[in-house]
Amino acid sequence: MRKSDLINRIAEKTGIPKVDVLVTLEAMFKEVKQSLVDGENIYVRGFGSFITKKRAAKIGRNIKRNLAVEIPEHYIPAFKPAKEFVNDVKASEKAANASKKIDESGD
C-alpha cells in the first residue's frame, strides 16, 4: 500500500476530503520526524512507539579501496510495534498469505 492508497482509504472510511486527509497525514509525519530529531520518542498506546536507537561506533570497510573506515556512533529512527499490534498481525491470515506471495516471488 502506498501513501495515496492510505489517503484514499481514510477518506472513504471517514468522509473527510482527500486533501484534508493528505494535509493531516503530512503534518503527522512531519511531527514524528521533528520529535525524533529533537530526541523525543513518541508512544501511541495500542499501536507502537517511534524511537531513536543508538548505533555504536564500528569499523567498516571500503571494499573498492580495501580501506578500514571508522563509522562513528550515531542514532537511527525505529518503530517498535505494541504487543496488541503484533498479536493482530500474527493472527491475520491475510498477512500470512501476503508473506507467502513475497517469498514465492523472490522479492
Rank of each mutant, 00 (worst) to 15 (best):
L36M: 06
A78Y: 10
A68Q: 14
T52H: 00
I76W: 01
V86R: 15
N41Y: 03
N62T: 13
P77T: 02
N41H: 11
R65F: 09
K83Q: 14
G46V: 09
E84Y: 10
A57N: 07
A68K: 15
N87T: 14
G46L: 06
V37Y: 00
V32Q: 00
I51G: 00
L36R: 06
K80I: 11
R65G: 03
F50S: 01
I42W: 01
L25I: 12
E84I: 10
F79A: 08
I42D: 02
F85D: 04
P77Q: 04
N62A: 12
I76G: 00
K64A: 15
K33D: 02
A82E: 13
R45Y: 11
P81I: 07
I51M: 04
M28L: 14
E70R: 15
V32P: 05
K58Y: 01
P81C: 10
E31P: 03
G46P: 06
K33M: 03
E70L: 13
F50N: 09
G60T: 05
I76E: 07
S35D: 01
G46A: 10
V23M: 10
P81F: 08
E84F: 11
K58L: 06
G48F: 00
A78F: 08
F85G: 04
R65T: 15
R65L: 14
V86S: 09
K64W: 08
K54D: 07
V23L: 12
P77R: 01
V86H: 04
M28A: 15
E26H: 12
T24S: 15
P81E: 10
Q34Y: 03
V44K: 01
R55D: 02
K58Q: 09
A82G: 07
V32T: 08
F50H: 03
I71K: 05
I51T: 14
H74V: 09
G46M: 05
F47L: 14
I76R: 09
M28D: 04
M28S: 12
E26W: 00
I51Q: 05
I42T: 05
M28F: 15
E31L: 06
H74P: 00
V44G: 04
P77L: 01
H74G: 06
V23C: 11
A57G: 14
K58F: 01
K33E: 03
A27D: 06
R61T: 11
V69M: 10
R45W: 08
K54N: 08
A27W: 08
G60C: 02
V44R: 01
A68Y: 10
L36D: 05
F79H: 07
N41E: 14
K54E: 11
F29W: 08
